[in-house]
Design a protein around this nucleic acid. Structure first.
Lengths: 341, 341
DNA sequence: TCCATTCCTCAAAGCGCTTTGGCTACTTCT
DNA sequence: AGAAGTAGCCAAAGCGCTTTGAGGAATGGA
């Protein structure tokens, strides 16, 4: 069933039917009702490819799906995707996912844009100096960045968490509790958020004249396994840290296990603060010792990003081009006063 | 840059350029080289929407993304998606994701099919008697089901895990170890796999004249929280079970915590076998007491499903329409001889 | 030399939609 | 009554591609 058939059936022209469907004013109310009724009865759906070709708009957002074998970020990615989906549903939008070799993200993005299948692009997992940005700017297509890239003042639209502030605040809290020896289980150091979190932590330490020694830092993919290994290593250092920051509750999962293995008491012998993306799978409050966290919902970010992108495509709304969200610092039992030396 | 411009640039007709690009034989070798060179230099990419309109093929697979707020299955979903993506990448396919209200899965699927944006459909999270199947059969579009639906002998293409056998075998092992009181932490009972796993377990028990009492069974979304709650409840029953089966390592995560809280020793006081979808996030071997599991990689299933769907779209391959995979039963420390009464 | 063959190329139609510009008939205003 | 709107509809062009059917040029055989 296509427009032609439908309009013949109704004894109307394609023009009129099309207008009736797309809410143009120059259609008689009665005629419009007739059209809508016929649509309901026949189950007619406009062909999106044809719409796309005619209008240049397709009602879809393109995203590149990171897909290295053994890629571990998927739990964060999917949480985010759920948020995107939630909002897209309200506007009858969909996503076009292009899986991409992580070594060819730029290429994948280019292909996606040139395919003419999407109205806007979205990128995440920003790197320190991300090569995709330059490319995106040359495209004449709306895009939105989740995160930011280190470098000059950003001149592109983004939504980011204030990672520096989050880890600055967390560190400050631990300092106030008397801690002086810190460790950090971070994400891969080439990723922007990892760099900023480390910076935030170091800034707070610097205020007290402290520094973060490299031996007490790990940069790994954010899996519980890596968390376990890193924490085990760090706990064997001569001067054991009394406070640990983790870039994800997933890392914390492993870290806590390492701590337990040594018979250390979380919140007494050692304090831990993790960043909480509000993963449905892993709630910091349901750890044996509930975790103190810096919290910011990845899913909410997804919703917001979809909202902004769709708004831009439809030209219905204007949003601030750059948003920086604050994480909440939520204190639970995994933080306590530093043990006496 | 479009075909017209490109062909003008080359002094050729659109036809010839199009043929050169799509590998038709009736194009001079030299001409083809010239075309390919120009494509490389200009970065020309054919507009997919136009291709789709002209050919009816678009190089994309449609899937409905379940998106209830608070939907907890996403970790399984994303693991699977990664597999799909891995394979799709090799064939330059992409996915069109339609987020859908879980109460309107049929509608979402219909819209997706009618949109003309996809060449094939994929469905998962099959229900006991799934209404989507009837709808899919009326569509003249290839589709593939992950899982099966209870009911008459399936007459549709599917890839499923032999859930009955997996839980039958797991139960049998526990029986051999002397266990007689069993519990089951299952997924939502309206889902096909949950029904089958329960059936498999009951079949094994029946061989020994045992039955599974309802009080010892829970049907919940597969989160660690639900696992914790269910296990807590079951452990307070008068006759405590000595063996537990979990439908996911995620559920097991909570269950293990409940077991620890009571000071019970996993693998001694109580044995546990979980189904392992090989989630990157949650490895059964890195539990404090490594988990005995029935294992089958969701990601591998994703790869296979993409392979089959793409093969069908391209008419390159024929595959068996129905595949039933066996899970591996992998014994680790969480199973042991039943404690003396 | 002429015709049949093969190789390469092209013009044009068509995929299903939107949108431009124009047309008719009916109101309303002067 | 005639001019000027206005409401409602339509025919046709165009989006960028593939594919059909056909034609020109070169080659080989008779």
């Amino acid at each position: 069933m296509n427009l032609k058939q439908l309009s013949q059936m109704l004894g109307l022209s394609q023009t009129t039917v099309s207008r009736a469907l797309n809410g143009y004013p120059e259609v008689n109310h009665e005629t419009r009702e007739r059209v809508l009724k016929a649509v309901r009865e026949t189950g007619y759906r406009p062909n999106k490819a044809a719409q796309r070709l005619a209008t240049g708009k397709a009602g879809s957002i393109g995203l590149v799906m990171p897909t290295s074998p053994g890629n571990s970020s998927d739990v964060h990615f999917s949480e985010f995707l759920t948020g995107l989906g939630e909002e897209a549903l309200r506007h009858d939008f969909h996503f076009v996912l292009t899986p991409a070799d992580p070594n060819d993200e730029v290429g994948a993005l280019k292909r996606l844009a040139a395919s003419g299948n999407v109205d806007a692009l979205f990128v995440n997992y920003m790197r320190g100096h991300d090569p995709r940005l330059e490319m995106l700017k040359t495209l004449s297509m709306p895009f939105l960045v989740h995160g930011r890239s280190i470098g000059p003042e950003p001149d592109y639209p983004f939504l980011d968490l204030d990672n520096e502030a989050a880890f600055y605040d967390a560190t400050k809290l631990l300092l106030q509790l008397g801690h002086r020896r810190f460790a950090l289980l971070n994400g891969p150091i080439y990723l922007d958020f990892a760099i900023r979190r480390k910076n935030g932590m170091e800034a707070a330490l610097a205020e007290r004249g402290l520094t973060l020694e490299e031996a007490y830092v790990s940069h790994t993919p954010m899996t519980d396994e890596q968390g376990l290994l890193a924490m085990e290593r760090i706990l064997q250092l001569e001067k054991r840290p009394t406070a640990v920051l983790c870039s994800s509750t997933v890392l914390a999962l492993g870290a806590v296990r390492a701590i337990n293995q040594l018979g250390l008491k979380l919140g007494e012998d050692i304090s831990l603060i993790a960043h909480d993306d509000v993963l449905t799978l892993l709630k910091p409050e349901s750890f044996t010792v509930p975790l103190t966290t810096t919290r910011s919902s990845l899913r909410a970010a997804g919703v917001r990003i979809a909202e902004r992108l769709i708004g831009e495509i439809k030209h219905t709304d204007t949003f601030p081009a750059q948003e920086l969200w604050k994480a909440e610092l939520i204190v639970r039992a995994s933080t306590g006063v530093a043990p006496a030396d």
